[in-house]
């Protein structure tokens, strides 16, 4: 059992307000590890209900150019798993926002799953999503993470067969990350129409919350997805703002405002 119910509570709170939970992805360490907690808190102020805190990796095969470059910058700034856990702990000191550690497998494997489960829990992390950990290979890491009370989130894709969707739903806890389309992470002008039937298929298999990501960058995406899914994940659009504003002193307020615009909370001059 998860030691906290922060993830479940975030979905429940959004549901009570008849809106999807906003899940914000942030590559830890970009532009610098010192800045990350402050950026995360800004995303939260803007309406992010859940944070996906990304561990940078040298070879991010599932990511498009924006997150690849964010990873490169974070690595150059000296970010490693230990530093990401420190960032999580710093965020936790200031906020109860649920945190999902989002990583490729190798950095976590190198850190060791026994140590990771313990240290992530101690840092106040709520769950873990490992992009290139297929459900077939997941038994070991999942049992260690779950034993420490961490949720394990897996990806469901448009290409997943029924058998695979069932495995993904069963092995996921906290929520299921529904990938909206084929390809890699990155903004799109439209969100694939095929994601709604996919969400409905998974709904028939599990009562766990379903959050949709890949390509989400606009308020209308959030509104549309919110009609059928429990959560909406935004990543590349956030990292692009960070890329373009680097060390600008008002980066926090820009991120906060962007999140507000997504959630429809801002008074937008049209």
């Amino acid at each position: 059992m998860p030691s906290s119910n922060r993830i479940a509570e975030a979905f429940a709170a959004a549901k009570a307000q008849s809106r999807p939970a906003l899940v914000a992805y942030l590559t830890a360490g970009d532009p610098s590890p010192e800045r990350s907690a402050s950026l995360a808190l800004a995303l939260h102020r803007g309406g992010a209900g859940i944070l996906e805190l990304g561990v940078p990796f040298s070879d991010p095969v599932a990511d498009g150019p924006v997150i690849q470059q964010a990873s490169d910058r974070a690595l150059k700034a000296g970010t490693n798993v230990r530093r990401v856990l420190e960032i999580a702990a710093e965020i936790r000191r200031h906020s109860a926002m649920p945190i999902v550690l989002f990583s490729y497998l190798n950095p976590l494997m190198r850190y060791g799953f026994d140590a990771l489960a313990r240290d992530a829990r101690d840092a106040g992390i709520d769950g873990c999503l490992i992009t290139d950990l297929s459900v077939e290979e997941a038994a070991g890491p999942v049992s260690k993470l779950r034993a420490a009370g961490l949720d394990t989130v897996f990806l469901a894709a448009p290409t997943s067969t029924g058998r695979r969707l069932k495995l993904v739903s069963e092995l996921s806890s906290g929520f299921v990350y529904v990938v909206s389309r084929t390809g890699v992470t990155g903004e799109r002008s439209d969100v694939a129409a095929s994601v709604e039937p996919l969400v409905n298929r998974i709904k028939s298999m599990t009562g766990k919350p379903l959050a949709v990501g890949f390509g989400v960058s606009k308020p209308e995406h959030v509104a549309a997805i919110g009609c059928y899914a429990d959560g909406v994940i935004v990543g590349s659009a956030i990292m692009r703002i960070i890329e373009q504003n680097g060390h600008a002193p008002d980066l926090e307020s820009r991120l906060e405002q962007f999140m507000r615009s997504l959630s429809g909370k801002e008074d937008s001059p049209r």
């Binding site: 095969v61 599932a62 290139d132 290979e137 990806l155 894709a157 448009p158 290409t159 067969t161 993904v168």
Partner: peptide
């Protein structure tokens, strides 16, 4: 059946690529 030679090999890819591998 999972493509392991001893502990090595296997399938460590994002879910999107699992279907074409199958």
């Amino acid at each position: 059946s999972g493509g392991h030679f001893g502990p090595y090999g296997g399938r460590y890819v994002p879910e999107i690529l699992m279907a074409p591998l199958e």
